[in-house]
C-alpha cells in the first residue's frame, strides 16, 4: 500500500466536495472489500480516501409503497438478514446471503458493489433483473443504463451512489453457480416477474459484465415456467473463458441456472 490522505465526511455534499477537490486522485471508500485489497497489492494508489462510513443517511432499508429503498452504504449482511427484504423480495435477501463470507458481508456494501461492477458480482444481476433505479447525488439512473461494461458504470466523475430502489416483483429468484476458487459468480442468473415485465439478468458470464436475455424473457412472458426455456440456448460467443469455465460451459450453465431460478421463483 502507498501512503494516502484520509477524510471522513459527514454528509454526501462534503463527500462530493472532497471528491471534486481531489481531482482524479480521490476514491470513495465504502466497505473496502475491493478497494483495500487492490491498494494493498499496489494496483491502486489513490492520493485521498474519502470514507463514506460516517455519512448520515446513506444506509438503511425501507419499503415505500411498492418500492424497496436500500441505502448505498447498507451492508450485505443487513440486506440478507432484513425482515423487510426477506418479505418483499426474498430472492434479493438470499442473493446477499450468498456473497463472499461473513467478514465480507459485514463490511461490503451494495453501493460499493454496484459502483465497482465486477463482472462476477451478484448485485448487478439483481439490479438488472428487478429493473432497479440507482440514485446518485446528481440523478436517477435506470439499471439498464447503469452497467456499461466490465468494471464500468454510467457514474460520472464525482458522482456518488446514495441508494438503490427496487420495484417489488411478484416473483423473483437468483441462482448462482459459484466460481470454485473465489466463489464469486461464475454464472449467476436473476429472474424477476412484475406484471407482464419479465427480466432475466446474467452475471459472471459476460465479457462486458451483466446482461439480459431477451429471448429467455420473451419465452417466460408467454408462460412463466422453467419448461418454457426448454430448447433455448445461449451462444458461447462473447462469454468469458478461463481456467474454471470455457465459454461453452458458461453458456450451458446459463440455461441450467435460468431454469432453476424460475423454478425457485415459483417456489418449486
Amino acid at each position: 500500500m502507498y501512503a494516502f490522505n484520509y477524510q471522513r465526511p459527514k454528509t454526501v455534499r462534503q463527500a462530493a466536495g472532497l471528491l471534486a477537490k481531489a481531482g482524479g486522485d480521490g476514491k470513495l471508500l465504502a466497505g473496502g472489500q475491493t478497494l483495500l485489497p487492490t491498494m494493498k497489492q499496489r494496483l491502486a494508489s489513490p492520493a485521498m480516501l474519502i470514507d463514506l462510513n460516517q455519512v448520515d443517511g446513506m444506509s438503511g432499508i425501507e419499503l415505500k409503497g411498492r418500492n424497496l429503498h436500500i441505502g448505498a452504504m447498507t451492508k450485505h449482511a443487513d440486506v440478507a438478514n432484513s425482515h423487510v427484504v426477506k418479505t418483499a423480495i426474498p430472492g434479493l435477501a438470499a442473493l446477499a446471503e450468498g456473497i463472499g463470507d461473513p467478514a465480507v458481508r459485514n463490511r461490503g456494501t451494495i453501493g460499493g458493489s454496484i459502483a465497482n461492477n465486477d463482472p462476477a458480482a451478484d448485485y448487478p444481476a439483481a439490479c438488472l433483473g428487478l429493473g432497479a433505479t440507482i440514485v446518485t447525488n446528481k440523478r436517477k439512473i435506470p439499471a439498464d443504463e447503469f452497467f456499461t461494461g466490465m468494471f464500468d458504470t454510467a457514474l460520472e466523475e464525482g458522482e456518488i451512489v446514495t441508494k438503490v430502489i427496487f420495484p417489488v416483483p411478484q416473483k423473483a429468484a437468483y441462482e448462482k453457480f459459484p466460481n470454485p476458487a473465489s466463489r464469486y459468480a461464475m454464472v449467476g442468473v436473476f429472474v424477476g416477474k412484475k406484471g407482464s415485465d419479465v427480466r432475466v439478468a446474467v452475471t459472471g458470464a459476460g465479457a462486458n459484465g451483466v446482461f439480459r436475455l431477451p429471448e429467455f424473457e420473451a419465452a417466460l412472458k408467454t408462460r412463466f415456467n422453467a419448461k418454457s426455456l426448454d430448447g433455448l440456448s445461449v451462444p458461447a460467443d462473447g462469454l468469458n473463458g478461463d481456467i474454471h469455465a470455457s465459454p461453452e460451459y458458461r453458456a450451458h450453465l446459463i440455461g441450467v441456472m435460468a431454469k432453476r431460478a424460475v423454478s425457485k421463483a415459483l417456489g418449486k
Partner: peptide, 23 residues
C-alpha cells in the same frame, strides 16, 4: 476435486491467489 497450480505457456502462474486457486 479442487486444487491445481496452473502455469500458462509463458510460465506465468495463473493460479497465484485464492481468486483462482481453489482450496
Amino acid at each position: 476435486l479442487l486444487e491445481g497450480a496452473h502455469y500458462n505457456k509463458d510460465g506465468q502462474l495463473v493460479t497465484a491467489s485464492y481468486m483462482d486457486y481453489t482450496m
